[in-house]
């Protein structure tokens, strides 16, 4: 397992090196600069010159790359154009995004699994569940987020329309982010249930006189838990991307909003910091997910080579 992780880590580091270099090239060729954003119309030529030096705009691409690489090795990512340490700014935003993703993940799991199982328990509602979830899968996250905002915040006044003051404020954005993923979890649960219900052990359990809900909870759900967890971990990565949209709509100062700010303010250190940290997070999730898959394969007696 260790050589496998080491190989993956090596390719991940090589890719990030390429990506950072590519971002620096694009940033240099982009119109405008961080100095212009900071100085605005008030700054004269001399002040702009000074700001250009301060923000690293005068550096060559390789020079800038060496500085960024040095910061990456020290794991501090340098400073933002406003002079704050990137690592603190990103981690502060990351915490909010993680809470949001946590809410979304929990909601998706509860929503998808409960609907998936209930659909097979009460088959008359199954086709409606299927249609609703297909419609959910067809809707972009921003439309779901906007509809929830209009209905529950602006019309019914049940939730705050934006900002973050307590954990309670994450509920509506969490639902908005998790609903689409919940539809994916529903499809997964439904397919799994369909497959398992046709297996012999279910028939045997029924023949022994187990009630429907006992068969579901005692046998099928138990069998489903590991692959479901693996599938859910795969979905977690998408929350970090979807968070960018939800954070913008609900004015949450998370990673997505920070990324937009970094792009609009030409803050290359902040941009690199966000992309590296988010990618590292997803890299860890991928490794955990593959470990879970390996454990599941072990249960099935199918030991794949890593």
């Amino acid at each position: 397992m260790f050589p496998y992780i080491a190989r993956k880590l090596l390719s991940f580091v090589i890719l990030l090196t390429f990506l950072i270099f590519f971002i620096l090239i694009l940033q240099k060729s982009r119109e405008g600069s961080a100095a212009l954003i900071l100085g605005g119309q008030r700054a004269d030529a001399k002040e702009l010159q000074l700001l250009e030096e301060l923000t690293g705009n005068k550096l060559s691409i390789t020079g800038h790359f060496v500085i960024v690489a040095k910061h990456l090795v020290q794991f501090d990512f340098g400073n933002t154009i406003s002079g704050q340490p990137v690592i603190f700014v990103v981690l502060n935003a990351f915490l909010k995004t993680i809470v949001l993703a946590g809410f979304a993940g929990a909601f998706a799991l509860i929503y998808g699994v409960s609907l998936g199982i209930y659909g097979h328990y009460n088959t008359s509602v199954q086709k409606y569940f299927e249609k609703i979830n297909y419609a959910m899968m067809s809707a972009p996250i921003f439309i779901i987020a906007l509809v929830l905002l209009w209905v529950f915040s602006l019309w019914l006044n049940w939730f705050m329309p934006g900002g973050v003051d307590s954990v309670f404020w994450f509920i509506l954005p969490g639902i908005a982010l998790g609903l689409k993923s919940g539809a994916h979890v529903y499809i997964f649960t439904d397919e799994y249930m369909r497959r398992e219900l046709s297996k012999k052990y279910v028939l045997t359990a029924k023949a022994y006189g187990y009630k429907k809900h006992r068969v579901f909870s005692k046998f099928i759900f138990k069998n489903m838990s590991l692959p479901l967890f693996s599938f859910w971990l795969l979905e977690l990565g998408s929350y970090l991307a979807g968070a960018a949209i939800v954070e913008m709509i609900y004015s949450i100062s998370g990673v997505g909003n920070l990324l937009l700010r970094a792009l609009l303010r030409y803050d290359v250190n902040l941009l690199i910091g966000i992309l590296v940290l988010v990618s590292a997070m997803i890299f860890i999730i991928t490794i955990v997910q593959e470990l879970v898959d390996r454990v599941y394969a072990g249960f099935l007696g199918n030991h794949d080579e890593f």
Binding site: K8, S11, F12, I14, L15, L19, I23, L26, Q27, R30, G237, S238, L240, A241, G242, A244, I245, G256, L259, L260, L263, L264, L271, I274, L275, V278, S279, A280, I282, F283, T286
Partner: peptide
């Protein structure tokens, strides 16, 4: 390389590239 590339969220990458 493609496995490593998949760790970067496609929407965030697309957004960054689009602005850059």
């Amino acid at each position: 390389f493609s496995e490593a590339f998949m760790t970067i969220p496609s929407l965030l990458l697309a957004l960054s590239l689009g602005y850059l």
